[in-house]
């Protein structure tokens, strides 16, 4: 396959997200400007100007009309996808790290970093259909986990919130009461910071990637550890194929040691693993730095990776990929 290279960002990529139809790709980077691309040919459709800090995460509504972004400028912004207009700004007292829209696009979970003595927190906000009626108030605020919460997503039917972060523990919270329901086991769980979390397309399980050089597959309801994928470098990004039993892990060495080594030694590949057999299938090379973001197109025929090198690489699979048999 010949990947399409998109050099729209001047700083490292942080997050990639496809809309539900898989025709738009949203990219977030540390350069303040989230960008939307056509996912088939990589053409840039537009940019969302307004943030004043690194943009860490985004999510797009099911109808592809609203985009929400979380930024280090202590805000989360709601955008009109088509026009690029800013609709609303949620203000926080610390940098916003992750954002996830619940089923129905009525609720959003936003996590904020520990900052100036404030602990990290998970905020649940209501999104109103009409942006003029949008309020800044939190429906629920959860505090407790130590360190940064790198990702929080909704569980099935918006009943739970799953969070993971620097304390290496995956937690499931009740989204109504904010009570801690389940916590991953210290023995079987990750040993270092969890950097990424991705739900399967059917929402029955999710994958976490960690700096302890492994990725783990969990049941979304019982938080039972299903599989562990071991690799030889820290995992920064994970994604799951919606059509095949494949998981993709992206990572690489620390940014600080990148320049001191040959890029071939850096292992900046997107590694494909078989979801069930936990066996490595292969790797897709190309980035000149660690992979920070991965996303699979909902049709399963392409995936994109975003690296520390500022490039988004869009890969459309050859027929060979679908013929792989194990």
């Amino acid at each position: 396959m010949r990947p399409i290279l998109m050099k729209g960002h001047e700083r490292p990529l942080t997050f990639l997200k496809y809309n539900r139809d898989g025709d738009l790709l949203f990219s977030c980077a540390k350069d303040h400007t989230p960008t939307v691309w056509f996912a088939d040919n990589g053409e840039r459709l537009g940019t969302y100007r307004g943030h004043n800090g690194a943009v860490w995460c985004c999510d797009v509504s099911r109808d592809s009309k609203r985009l929400i972004t979380a930024s280090a400028d202590q805000t989360a912004k709601l955008w009109d996808v088509q026009k690029g207009a800013e609709l609303f700004t949620f203000k926080f007292d610390s940098p916003a790290k992750s954002v996830d829209l619940g089923v129905g696009d009525k609720l959003v979970v936003i996590t904020t970093d520990p900052f100036m003595g404030l602990p990290s927190a998970i905020h649940v906000k209501r999104i109103s259909g009409d942006p003029s009626e949008q309020s800044d108030e939190s429906v629920l605020t959860i505090k407790g986990p130590q360190g940064r919460i790198n990702r929080a997503v909704w569980g099935p039917l918006n009943r739970t919130i799953i969070s993971a972060g620097e304390d290496a523990v995956v937690r499931i919270w009740d989204s109504e009461t904010g009570k801690l329901l389940l916590e991953s086991d210290k023995e079987t769980g990750h040993k270092k910071t969890i950097t990424s979390l991705a739900k399967s397309s059917d929402g029955s399980h999710f994958l976490t990637g960690s700096l302890d050089k492994s990725a783990k597959l969990w049941d979304i309801r019982s938080l039972e550890l299903i599989k562990t994928y071991k690799t030889e470098r820290p995992v920064n990004a994970v994604t799951l194929s919606p059509v095949l039993d494949h998981v993709v892990l992206g990572g690489g060495q620390d940014a600080s040691s990148v320049t001191t080594t040959d890029h071939r030694a850096g292992k900046f590949e997107a590694k494909f693993y078989h979801k069930i057999l936990e066996e490595e299938i292969g790797g897709v090379k190309g980035h000149f730095g660690p992979i920070n973001a991965l996303a699979f197109n909902p049709d399963g025929k392409s995936f994109s990776s975003g690296g520390e090198d500022g490039y988004v690489r869009l890969h459309h699979f050859d027929q060979d990929y679908f013929n792989i048999r194990i």
Binding site: R2, R44, G286
Partner: peptide
């Protein structure tokens, strides 16, 4: 197009297809 992408010329140069084939190395 909107935002910075309105300037069409710039947008064209941002996206390019890799000249080298990349395979899923097994």
């Amino acid at each position: 197009k909107f935002g910075d992408a309105v300037d069409e010329d710039v947008g064209v140069r941002l996206t390019m297809t890799s000249v080298e084939d990349v395979f899923l190395d097994r």
